[in-house]
Design a protein around this nucleic acid. Structure first.
Lengths: 174, 174
DNA sequence: TCAAGATCGTCAGACGACTGACGAAATTTG
DNA sequence: CAAATTTCGTCAGTCGTCTGACGATCTTGA
């Protein structure tokens, strides 16, 4: 798996079947592959967007607020599948950086109404090509048909388990 | 008109194309789907293993140490695709709970040699059925062939990006 | 041999993420 | 209307994760 180590670590039962199947029980788990694939996706996005100092979660929130000005934090959370605490934390970061505003709702005192600042809108626009590059790089090893298959399978997984997870995706068109 | 929400949140451009495509730019991103699918996998695992108070990362480390007694923390990190800090933190948790031991290496003073305690081995054994249930539940919406396809596609993603993601983390960029 | 370089574990700092709890504010219900 | 319930935002606590730095230690090369 990672064959360039200069000084190989002591291995279990060298040359035996045990070595070949080391951690097979873990590597075969779909959850492990999903964790790893997600880790890779985060890394690729971070690389492409390094100069903007924006993470993929922050990007998602910026896009949501951009497309739906006046949305509140719970709305963002439901749209992106985050919980309220995480959303509040990340929104706080973006507000502190001056990328979005968090105002009181006119009639509902509980809500914080979100909107992009000029700087946030500019950053989002500048970010689009980098986000596209990240997506393309992530999918580079797959053919368009394979990417479509992967997308469809992940959608099936998401749809089936949506209600079971504490934070179901709530899209306005539902 | 707008789903089952009792008090629907204000939606963008009601009835227009904007509503139907709200966040389509995000939902279409494979990184978003991977994040969501990973989130679901974590949740299912946590549900099945709730009574054991063990996370999927902790499970992976326990299995690695079980299959490879005497492995050190960097070995665990490389095997599971974690960095040294994360590994050290989680190993510390497991040690504090008495599930594994962390001893000095006989000849290499830098290394910490890991091994399961009796309690760790017992827990790991008791955990196996729950982990299997988690995997089955996660894959429930897919046929065996589809699960195999998903596995293969994620493997392609992992293999292609493996060197790009992990090696720079382990070796300072030069 | 001994200085330079590599490796291991750890720490601090940051972010993402979830749970459980709480107060403030709104809505529902008796 | 008043009380009970729900909803929104936040806080504290925990865990996973990465980055960058550091000291201790081991390996290498001049």
């Amino acid at each position: 798996m990672n064959g360039q180590a200069r000084k190989p670590r002591p291995a279990p039962a060298q040359g035996s079947a045990a070595e070949a199947s080391f951690l097979a029980a873990i590597y075969a788990r779909p959850g492990f592959k999903l964790r790893r694939a997600h880790q890779i996706a985060l890394s690729v996005f971070a690389e492409e967007c390094r100069s903007f100092e924006v993470t993929s979660t922050q990007y998602g929130i910026l896009v949501a607020v951009s497309e739906w000005p006046g949305l509140d934090q719970v709305g963002v959370a439901q749209a992106l599948g985050l919980d309220r605490s995480t959303t509040g934390m990340v929104v706080g970061l973006l507000e502190a950086r001056g990328l979005l505003r968090r105002d009181r709702h006119a009639t509902d005192g509980r809500r914080r109404v979100l909107s992009l600042t000029e700087e946030g809108a500019r950053l989002l626009e500048a970010l689009a090509p980098a986000a596209e590059r990240a997506r393309d790089r992530l999918l580079a090893p797959l053919s368009p048909e394979e990417a479509q298959t992967l997308t469809a399978l992940l959608d099936r997984l998401m749809d089936h388990h949506d209600a079971l997870v504490r934070v179901p995706l709530m899209r306005p068109e539902r």
